[in-house]
Computed example of a mutant assay.
Amino acid sequence: MPLLVAPDNGIPMKTVFTLQEALRGNPERIKKTQALTLNDSKPNMGLSGKYGLFGSKEWWESIASARMPLERVTGVVVRAYVAGQDSGDINTVDIRMPGGEILAAGIYLNNKADLALFQVGHMVSIVYALDELKLQPAHDGGINVSKVALEMAVSLVP
């Protein structure tokens, strides 16, 4: 179920991550996330389950039918770097959005070899599901959500 609509600008894009593929290789993530949702003794932790249990058929149908809000981010890489205390491979990019703002985004991959595509000047597109958390409201009074990366693509050329 492709969700990512690459910009129609003639730049070839490669999908480097889909959550569906990642979950096939990590079924334990689904079990743990669902268990936390169902755990009434932790009312401030985990997803609410409003759109179905994470990774379930109902959850994916909520995404496909647009019941669950999605956020699409597209921009050009201006910096690729290691964020956090681990000194491993790059894991974050700063993306210049069409309006000029800079957004930091994590790098998601199904195949580590695709990390080489995340270079300055390359375009990146990400689709996030905005799944509601149990703990409501957010600090700003809005809806508290978890941004779940569903798909990520990067251009093959700058």
Rank of each mutant, 00 (worst) to 15 (best):
P69M: 10
W59R: 09
K50E: 15
K57E: 13
A64R: 14
G49R: 01
R72S: 15
E61Q: 14
V76Q: 14
K57Q: 13
K50I: 15
A66Y: 11
V73F: 14
F54V: 08
G49T: 06
G46D: 12
W60L: 01
S65T: 15
M68A: 06
V78N: 03
A66H: 13
W60D: 04
V76M: 12
K50G: 11
T74W: 06
E61K: 13
I63F: 00
L53P: 06
G52D: 03
M68H: 06
T74D: 12
S56M: 01
Y51F: 13
E61I: 08
S65F: 10
S48D: 13
V78P: 04
R67N: 14
T74R: 06
G49H: 02
G52I: 03
E71N: 07
V73C: 12
S62F: 00
G46T: 12
G55V: 06
L70P: 09
K50M: 13
V77C: 07
V76W: 05
I63R: 01
W59L: 10
G75P: 10
L47E: 00
V78D: 07
F54L: 07
W59D: 09
E71H: 05
L53S: 02
L53R: 00
E71D: 09
V77H: 00
L47K: 01
G49S: 05
K50N: 15
P69Q: 13
E61G: 07
V78I: 08
V78G: 02
S56G: 04
S62E: 03
R67S: 13
K50A: 15
G46K: 06
I63E: 00
F54H: 03
G49I: 04
V77W: 00
K50F: 12
S65N: 15
G75A: 03
S48P: 14
G52H: 00
L53N: 00
A66E: 10
G49D: 05
G49E: 04
P69I: 09
G75Q: 03
G46H: 12
W59Y: 14
G75N: 04
K50P: 10
A66K: 13
V77T: 04
R72W: 08
V73W: 13
W60R: 00
E58G: 08
L70E: 07
T74A: 13
L53Q: 01
V78L: 02
V76Y: 05
V78Q: 06
M68I: 07
E71A: 07
S56E: 01
F54A: 05
R67K: 14
L70I: 09
Y51N: 10
L47C: 02
S62T: 05
F54T: 05
V77K: 01
S48Q: 05
P69R: 09
G52E: 01
V77P: 07
W60M: 01
W60P: 04
W59N: 09
S56T: 04
V73T: 14
W59K: 08
S62A: 12
G49M: 03
A64L: 11
V76G: 05
V73Y: 15
G52Q: 00
P69S: 13
R67Y: 12
A66M: 11
R67D: 12
K50D: 14
F54P: 08
E58M: 08
V76L: 07
E58Q: 11
I63N: 00
V77S: 02
A64C: 08
Y51V: 08
E61W: 08
L53C: 03
